[in-house]
Structure formats: structure tokens, C-alpha cells
Nucleic acid binder design. Sequence first.
DNA 1: AATGATGATGGAATCGTTTCCATGAGCACT
DNA 2: AGTGCTCATGGAAACGATTCCATCATCATT
Lengths: 335, 335
Amino acid sequence: MSTPGPRRITIKDVAELAGVGVATVSRVLSGGSASAETRERVLDAATKLDYRPSALGRNLRQQRSGGVALLVPDITDGFYARLCDGVLSCARSYREPVTIGVTGDDAEQEADLVGGLLEQSMDRIIAVPTGDGEMWASAVRAGLNVVFADRRVWSPGQHARALDEVPAVLTDDRAGLRTAIEYLTGLGHRKIGFLARQGMSHRVAAFREVMGDLLDEDLVVFARASRDSAYAAAAGLFQRRADLTAVIAGGNMLGEAAVLAARELYVRIPRDLSLIMFDDVPWAELCSPPLTVIAQPASDVGYRAAELVLRHGRRPRTVSLPTELIVRSSCAPRR
Amino acid sequence: MSTPGPRRITIKDVAELAGVGVATVSRVLSGGSASAETRERVLDAATKLDYRPSALGRNLRQQRSGGVALLVPDITDGFYARLCDGVLSCARSYREPVTIGVTGDDAEQEADLVGGLLEQSMDRIIAVPTGDGEMWASAVRAGLNVVFADRRVWSPGQHARALDEVPAVLTDDRAGLRTAIEYLTGLGHRKIGFLARQGMSHRVAAFREVMGDLLDEDLVVFARASRDSAYAAAAGLFQRRADLTAVIAGGNMLGEAAVLAARELYVRIPRDLSLIMFDDVPWAELCSPPLTVIAQPASDVGYRAAELVLRHGRRPRTVSLPTELIVRSSCAPRR
DNA sequence: AATGATGATGGAATCGTTTCCATGAGCACT
DNA sequence: AGTGCTCATGGAAACGATTCCATCATCATT
């Protein structure tokens, strides 16, 4: 014996009360043409009945569900949290709901999530992609409206074409790294390490390029997505190479791990080791010593990506947002 | 001239290929009864055609869209980020998409978001509620399946009944505060302040109660949702009351503000002021000095809340998860 | 052998919207 | 007045699933 409950008010009810056909109501409500008088009658009836169109009916008819999907590697990472916030705040102004998925920087989970979205007939997605070019290419072919954020997928061979069409909002990692590395070399550092995480190949590539002759391949290390793995990578690097005098952490979790590992191993920052971290998180200033960082406009990245996917107007290929080196106290001249 | 594209595979195609009616296909696919042979034929056809049921059709028919909504005050706050992560990870195992909204601790935005969800026919929602009992009561009456997380709405007067039925997953703030306050009084502190944010009235109430005779109403201050406001509140308190010897920050953003304000005002922690912060964030250990915190299982809160809203089985009224005092170096005996 | 119970099955209705198409009215122009 | 054009308008057909209900076969019981 379930509650009968008040039946939902449909477009039919409105049509009836206004004395017009449902088609007319639909037109009026979605801005089509109608005579002034009819329009008023319909609007009146709709208000009187407190009519709310059902997204369900509309979605089925239009063969697409509204809203935007957002895929990030880890929502617990301050950077991606801010990125989400940017997306959310833009989507809000369009009154579009946002569905969030966490990939954990894992290609399989990513593919799973995209599959789920297709099933939901979501056709707009903002993604921080994780690797698999093939998957993204086929998603694009399937009609998915993709915008990449923070990084784009490296396009190997044939699907290059399809993926290069995908708009992306990135930060200018290369410029940030160049500034950071110039700052470090200016302090006399030559042995500079890089702490990366899987999926940061773009940053690693930029690091390699900017370092040029100074590059020591043995000084760039990769961690998996977890905090533990980041710690292990940092500690490993510090122990293995005592000649290291400076290190750049590719993200705030890597930076956190570096500070922790340094403390654990009695490596003093900045006396023994200079540290620069990607991403200016609030605690960078609270840390001891306060960390010199490469600040990224995470929230703007999200906002712009959302604009791109929602406005759907002219779509520029790629937007690149500036980074900024914020000097605090975690770097010192090489001794 | 739009691409005709491969028509979507519907249940009808499967029925045709299997030589059965659509009803039978639907039954087989959703676990109804069917003869072994029919079942096999249908399953075969479905695989052969790579059939994916359309969530749109199903949703319209069942008058509800799948998925869960999640409302948090601020996704940029590490605590809520972890809460989201917990929800996401539980929802993932049910293959349910999660729609996230940010309320900014603002009742109006919250009401807006809930309205949007209703329009989408979302009927399951996990919320960190912000105040307006009337709104939540009417949402529940409208058939929305609500689970509160982290805090519940204070139910004034008549809708108490409806809202008390709403399940909630909370942390045991009271116990956490009791432990913290006992620890502080054990160190000799008597003038203990509390930094709160709007929407933390439950914690403030607990603080008041546990403090008992020691309570000085002038020492509990409220900030709005922003970082700036948190800083202003902390700085204001420190300047106004030089006799303050200990303070408890109601959340990690408040704690951050407290550390910053103390540094700015040359208040030394823990020498001049002992500090305990709600929520153990990774940087608490990196801070100088490392912060003593009341740890909360944020992720579990989200996970349990998601279970409650998804399993829909026996629904316990309220789940309370334990907190833990983690002693680091931000508290010292009163001098 | 007749009757009833059980279970598998498919046709058709339904959910609420948008959109195609036919109709008819009104108007301007020849 | 006749012709043609532009509009507003409403009926009906989608969209793709679930589910009610009637039908029919099979089998057991009397």
C-alpha cells in the first residue's frame, strides 16, 4: 500500500488549463514562436500549477542527458579539488549538474567510468586524461564532447587526428619549469631532481627539455598515485643520490612526500636540499620552511574547461594558462 | 547534413535477433524468470550486438533518474574532499554516478541545488546540510531520499518528526571535544577559545556543554565560509583576548587561519598559545610546530552515508563514528 | 479425460517531453 | 476576388525502456 501521492504536473495539465495543445506549451516554454496572448495564457497556467518540466522526458526525447561529467585522478588532491570547484562554479551558472568520477590515474577505471557515462547518454565531459589514447579516440568517435583539462592525451600514430581536435585547457608547465630551473641554476644548482607521478609525462618531458645538458635521467623518479608511493619515491631518491642539491616536486602530494622524507632522513631544507613544488597550496606557507612553489590557476583551468564544453561556440584548440613562481624559503644557494 | 551515424542498438534489435518479444528481453536482462533456452538466446543476441541498455528509457519509465547527489559546503576543504572520495568509492561499486554540488554553507544556494535535483528526478541525496530545516522537511515530504553526513539539521518545532527520521552519519564531535578539552585542562589551561564557522552550531553546542563552568562565551567566535573570514576571526580573537591560553579550531581551514594569524601577531605556538585543530590533514604534520588534532574518519563518513542511501535496507537512525586525539606538538602546559 | 494450477511469453500501454507535419487563418499583392 | 505567403496552432509520432495483462502450453490431480 504505497502512498498514492499527488500526481506529477505534466505539460499536458498546463496545456489543458491554458486551453491549448501540448505542442504550443512546449514551444512557449522553450522560446519558440507564439502569439502574445497564447504565451501569456500558457505562462499563467504554468505558474498557477507550479509546473516543472521533467528532465527525464526531455532527455529521452533529445537522446542526451543534460549535465557535464568531470573525471579527475584524485579529488583528495588539493589541485584537482580546486579544478573541480572551478568546473562546478561555471556549471552552476548554466544550471547544469556535474557528475564527478575519480580515475585514480588508472586507465582501466577511466575506461569504466567513460563507459558508464555513455550508458547514461552523457555527451559532455571534462577529463584529466590518463593515458589511453585509443580509448579517448573511440569515445570522441562515439560522439562524446570531450574537453581535456590540466593535461591532454599523448596521441600516438593514427588517432592523432581525432584527439588533436579535442580542446584542452592546460597550464604552461614548460614556462613554469623554465623559470624554476633558471632560478635554481642561478643559485648554483646543477644536480636537479624531478619527482613525478604516473600521468605526468608531459611535465617530465618539459623538465627534460628545459634541463638540456644538465639532465641526469637517474634523477627523475616516478611514483604511483598513492601517498605511500610518493614517499617511497622521494626517500629513495634522497638516499640513492647524496649529490642531489635541488629537487622539483611535480605536484603537491609529491612535495608533501619530499618534505616528509627529507625530515625523516635528516636532510635539511633548504640547507642540504632546495625544494620547489608544483602547485601553491595553502599549507605551503605554513610549512617549515615555507615552500617555494610554481603556482597554477587550478580553479581557472576548471572554469575555462567548463566554459568550453558548455558554451559550445567557437572552440579554440587549446588554452594555456600562465604559472607563477612564488619564492618563499625552501631554496638556498648551493653550498 | 548531419552524420546519419550507426543507429543506437535498442532492446528491440535484441528481441528481433533472439526471436523473442521485447518484454522477454527486458525480463532476462533484469533477472526476471525465463526458460533456460530463451535466456541463453537473449544473452547471446545481446552480446553479439553489444547491446547497452539506455539509462534514459529506463529512467523515464521508472520516473526516477539513477545516481546519487552529494551536497557539500566546500569541495576545496580537505575534509569534504575526503568525504566526497568516500561517497564516490562506495557509489562506484554500485555503478551509480554521483552528482556533486557545492553549497558554500549558504541556505539559498542549497535550496537552489535541491530544486535542480528534483527537476532531474534525482531521488537520493547525501547532504552536509546548511541550516534551513523547513526546506529539508519539504524535500523529504516530496519523496526525496535524504541521508545527512557530518552534521544533521537542527529541527525546530513541527517538522522535527520528519527530519528525525532522516538517517545521518556523524562523527562523535562531543567525545572528541571532551578528550581535547580534558587534555588542555590537564595542561592547566582554563581560558579556552573556540573558532567556529557558520554551520558548525552542533560543534559549538558540544563545546559549550563540555566546557561547563569554564565556558567564556566571549571566547567562541564565528567566521563565514571564506579563508579571509576565518583569518579575521582568528586574528580578532587573539588580539582581543590576551588572556587566552588555548584555542580549538573547528575545522582545518580555521586551524590554518589560526596558525597564520598567530604567526602574523607574533603569538608563539605552543609557548604562548596551545592549538588543537579538528581534522587531521596531511599538512598538520608538516606544519611548524606539528599540530595536535582531533582526527575524523572523513572518508568513512562518506562511505557509510553512501551505503545508507544506496542499500536502502534496514536504515539505522544515526551512525556515529569515533574521533581520535592525535597529540603532536602544538600544545604546552600553561605558563 | 476434464479441470486447474503454474509458468513462459509477447503485445501494448506507459512515462513526459520535443518535433514533424498538416491545417487553417490572416494578410498582402496582383 | 483570387492567389500565394507567412504564421500560429494542435495532433500524433517518436525516444527506449519496464510492466501489466492476456494468451497459451505444459503438467499434475481428480
